[in-house]
Amino acid sequence: MIIEQFNCASVSSLLFLVSVVGMFLNQKNILVMLMSLEMMFLSISFNLIFTSICLDDIVGQIFSLLILTVAAAESSVGLAILVIYYRIRSTITIELMNLMKG
């Protein structure tokens, strides 16, 4: 049981670290940054579910559903803004994002 707990916690931590590295190493493509952000949300949700199962409590699972709902809304709004930006500028690089006014 202890080994399974360590494996789940290490997988969650590894997912979070990979997403942080992906966020910092690739700062030119906004699509990769959005995917890294979604992977951060997924790793946090996975950790909450795992903790909820270990503690035999449902609160972590409810928070996990709340996080996944907010992450889905965030990604849909982000992708919609990205599509509009691509139609105007014909590129999705971040260097030209400072030209946006709002």
Rank of each mutant, 00 (worst) to 15 (best):
M1G: 09
I3C: 04
E4N: 15
E4G: 02
F6E: 13
F6R: 08
F6N: 10
F6H: 11
N7D: 13
N7F: 11
A9S: 14
S12H: 09
S12V: 08
S13R: 02
L15V: 05
L15P: 15
L15F: 14
L17G: 05
L17K: 03
V20C: 03
V21D: 00
G22Q: 07
G22D: 08
M23S: 15
F24N: 02
L25G: 15
N26H: 03
N26F: 01
Q27W: 05
K28L: 14
N29V: 00
N29F: 01
M33N: 02
L34R: 00
L34G: 02
L34H: 04
M35S: 10
L37C: 14
L37N: 12
E38F: 00
M39G: 10
M39H: 08
F41P: 04
L42K: 05
L42C: 03
I44C: 03
I44P: 01
F46Y: 12
N47R: 04
N47S: 06
I49Y: 05
T51G: 09
S52M: 08
S52T: 08
I53T: 07
I53W: 07
I53H: 07
C54R: 12
D57G: 04
D57C: 11
I58D: 14
Q61G: 15
F63T: 01
S64A: 05
L65F: 08
L66T: 06
L66N: 05
L66A: 09
I67S: 08
L68T: 06
L68H: 14
T69E: 07
V70W: 00
A72R: 10
A72K: 06
A72W: 01
A73V: 11
E74I: 12
E74G: 13
S75Q: 05
S75M: 14
S75G: 09
S75D: 02
S75C: 13
L79Y: 05
A80D: 15
A80G: 12
A80W: 10
L82S: 07
L82T: 04
Y85P: 06
Y86F: 12
Y86V: 13
I88K: 09
I88D: 03
I88E: 10
I88C: 04
S90A: 11
T93K: 06
I94Q: 07
I94N: 12
E95F: 09
M97V: 10
M97A: 14
N98I: 03
L99P: 08
